[in-house]
Design a protein around this nucleic acid. Structure first.
Lengths: 207, 207
DNA sequence: GTCTATAATTCGATAGAC
DNA sequence: GTCTATCGAATTATAGAC
């Protein structure tokens, strides 16, 4: 192989960008620090992604889209197996695909990825982009909750789901901060976190 | 008055900084944009606050410290009037002083202030500083919850309070986004938000 | 305390050779 | 596709007159 494939260089840039965006934020991360961490040239970012904004958008979509797909798959599976599904089961289908990216990956890559997503949810430049990526998923979950909570108005379900999302985002940003480095991650902690999220938000949703 | 008093210039700088930090974030806000909005000279920031970091810290303390004091006052009042206090009443003493800064002030200044605090909770450079400012208040509320929930372990109360804080922070950052300009603000919306926060988080805490 | 002027650095982006 | 070299603009911070 005389030269690196385009896919490899792109992935190296995205991996390094994710890590730095997640820990320092987008504005505090220079393109120079990214290429240094990725071991590539500065011009490669502009060649592959056009601009810093293009890089952020590409990293965002790569991280979020598989999560959204899994959320929708699990929601459909839940609605087919449980009739009617419980609030807890629906919330699990919402949370598990997000936190689930932590366990299967190697060397804490998934941990960095969910932190990156959490950061993007709170940064002024990207919060609306994230909401747009999750829009379809969110609408489907609102429909699911409406069916199992017929006495609850749509607006009430909406603000309660917003509250639940708030807890999830905060968890992505702050949780596991002691294990921020590349370490083997116990899937037990992920499952415990999912259980806490489900229990807390389901109680709030049913209140 | 031949020259402005130091207090006036400092307040003008802090007011403008709050507004810009809240909407654009700290790194995306230049000192030049702050002095332009404040109508003062660039060197004034360094004269009064030493550096950009010093300005951020000063704005943070000015915004948070009165809230912490009010939280503690209301918690003490609750513990003296209700024996034992309900989970809902304790949460109200936690949330109301934060959202309460919105209503009394004029022209949406309080609205900007709580948004600024919310942003500082999510920005990597300041999230630990905010946690430090709220540390005492948070400890006192954990103690209060322990007394009314004796069957609940301390760690469980701690992560549930963390979840509740997550909802509050998100509300500070995103809520009232349609009324982001300097407008008369109805205190009814503030009270409604407090009620939702209390109901949702109390249900989660008791689950 | 306030101002002008500027130092010293860093940033995103691009041109052009290979 | 990758690299070097560099442009132009923006940044924080400071020195020194008033």
């Amino acid at each position: 192989m005389v030269s690196k494939s385009s896919a490899t260089t792109q992935a190296q840039i995205l991996d390094a960008a994710e890590q730095l965006f997640a820990t320092k934020g987008q504005h505090a991360t220079s393109l120079r620090s990214i290429v240094k961490a990725a071991g590539v040239n500065l011009a490669a970012i502009h060649y592959h992604f056009g601009s810093k904004e293009g890089l952020i958008l590409a990293a965002l979509k790569r991280a979020i889209q598989p999560i959204v797909s899994t959320q929708i798959e699990q929601l459909i599976a839940v609605e087919e197996s449980e009739i009617p599904p419980s609030v807890e089961t629906i919330f699990r289908a919402f949370f598990a695909p997000v936190l689930g990216v932590i366990s299967p990956r190697q060397n804490g890559r998934g941990l960095i990825q969910v932190k990156f997503i959490g950061r993007c949810c709170t940064e002024p430049a990207t919060e609306r982009l994230v909401a747009e990526e999750f829009r379809l998923s969110q609408q489907l979950f609102i429909q699911a909750f409406r069916q199992v909570l017929p006495d609850c108005s749509k607006s009430e379900i909406e603000w309660k789901l917003d509250f639940a999302i708030a807890v999830l985002i905060r968890q992505l940003c702050t949780s596991f901060q002691d294990k921020t480095t590349f370490q083997e991650f116990s899937s037990g902690k992920v499952e415990l976190t999912i259980q806490r999220l489900v229990r807390f938000t389901a109680a709030g949703m049913k209140s």
